[in-house]
Write a protein that binds this DNA or RNA. Sequence first.
DNA 1: TGGTTATTTGGTAAAATAGCCAAATAGTAC
DNA 2: GTACTATTTGGCTATTTTACCAAATAACCA
Lengths: 104, 104
Amino acid sequence: MNADVRARYEQRAAVLKSLAHATRLFIIDELSKEEHCVAELTEMVGADMSTVSKHLSVLKGAGLVRDEKRGAQVYYRLRVPCVLNFFGCVEDVIKADGEGGCSC
Amino acid sequence: MNADVRARYEQRAAVLKSLAHATRLFIIDELSKEEHCVAELTEMVGADMSTVSKHLSVLKGAGLVRDEKRGAQVYYRLRVPCVLNFFGCVEDVIKADGEGGCSC
DNA sequence: TGGTTATTTGGTAAAATAGCCAAATAGTAC
DNA sequence: GTACTATTTGGCTATTTTACCAAATAACCA
């Protein structure tokens, strides 16, 4: 694996890494239904607001969510709805556990 | 987010976590073309064999690859080809960078 | 059996990640 | 302006992940 090839995989890995956390998956799921401000997400997640804010910053850095300041609040919404397709496939992988393969 | 809900997201996150590493994405990609033994993958990746073996163990633990011992070698192959669908979507996310959204 | 090859496992050090608190910033309202 | 609210950032510690080396295991061959 040479340097450019590695760089390309690192880029892909960065996107997946941003998704590889239960709280961030939950946030993505919620934002797929409707936009939310940080306080709302903090309430839903049940963690410190600074923690939630950092998770959002990770998702934003990966280009998965977009933020918009409205007054004192910052509203987040899903920028790439296709990440939801991941979930279906992840479910398939989980369901395929122990079997010969998945349904896709 | 109560305990069961969190558990469900943790499970999904575990699958994504197993994919969230450049070397493991590379391995998945190579295994999607044809099966390989550890020595072959080690050569392709360019890391210590023990490192590659551990990456394979992570992928196996997540149910993404299957291993089969043939003589002294252990051959790995992709168990859930649908993970390849991820890659297309990840590419879309990367391409959508800075734009209003992705193509899916 | 002993020697050689292929792979995994255990140990360890370095790096990355996650969570909370406290402080800083930005906006609103008075 | 001050006071108050919403959010982000910095600092710190605990946990997890990664990669290498060395040792253990398993299978082959002479």
